[in-house]
Design a protein around this nucleic acid. Structure first.
Lengths: 145, 145
DNA sequence: TATTGTTATACTCTATAACTATA
DNA sequence: TATAGTTATAGAGTATAACAATA
């Protein structure tokens, strides 16, 4: 396991943190649909990963309070991006499912952001890109830990 | 230069984008001072990198409208985190400078986030960490392009 | 006349508290 | 009595429009 008492390692952690934050901020600016708030997009992303979910589950996953999720989900439903269905077996709950339109919006968003990032990466040399490519799966692992 | 027509490269770009966004979101949650908004912290970070700046410059760098920056800077001044001085040579403008207290807050924030990230990285094996360490400077380069 | 910064005002997003329906 | 979701209301953060001071 890595030993953070080494100062080069501490410096690498610092570089990683700072670069990740800054890069993420720039990626976030690349929005395909200005009419969807970041959280609304994020909810669609969560639904894409997890399939369907109840409003309560979504609120917990997005770190948002239940009343806020009520509003967000109602907005998404109004835009035709999710469907609300009764929960089978518990009539208090509801099930939120994304529509095909939502998949299209998500795909368009991914495409735009990937294109922007690819453009940026195009300015690196082969060696740097090879290092980045090797680290991509590690970053993914880290993001899911 | 990288060739994005290769599908493995496109997949790596996608992984990079998604992992960066998710990791950044988790780092952002590690806040040392709940009384400072993300943008306020960000302004302090900008002042730390660029030294002093006028409200107009800060508004452009933070992608915020001038009236919003007026409010933010006033808030930071009220908290003793920045000083406002007259601009030498143009009496319309002002110069915003961070205080020593701001440096302390920034340092504490960096420490907390680095510690959190180091903890996460501690769960990787040596090989993964070596890949990540090698990519850190490339990510930095990318974030500043 | 153009530019910098501010004031006044409105909108968006989210939170807390109180309520309804179901378990 | 506890839980899922909603309604009502308030607060934070940002935007646009109109204004003052200076270039």
């Amino acid at each position: 396991m890595p030993d953070m008492s080494r100062s080069e390692d501490a410096a690498a952690v610092n570089a990683l943190r700072s670069a990740t934050m800054r890069l993420a901020r720039r990626i976030k600016h690349q929005r395909v649909d200005e009419s969807l708030s970041p959280t609304e997009m994020s909810v669609l992303g969560t639904l894409s990963r997890c399939g369907s979910a109840t409003p309560g589950e979504l609120a917990r996953k997005e770190h948002v309070q239940p009343p806020s999720m009520t509003r967000i989900v109602a907005m998404l439903e109004g835009k035709g991006l999710v469907r609300m269905e009764p929960h089978p077996g518990d009539r208090r709950q509801k099930v939120v499912t994304r529509t095909e339109l939502a998949d299209e919006v998500l795909e368009a968003s991914r495409r735009k952001r990937n294109a922007w990032l690819a453009e940026l990466i195009g300015q690196l040399d082969e060696e740097d890109w090879a290092r980045l490519r090797a680290a991509a799966p590690v970053l993914e692992k880290l993001a899911h830990l």
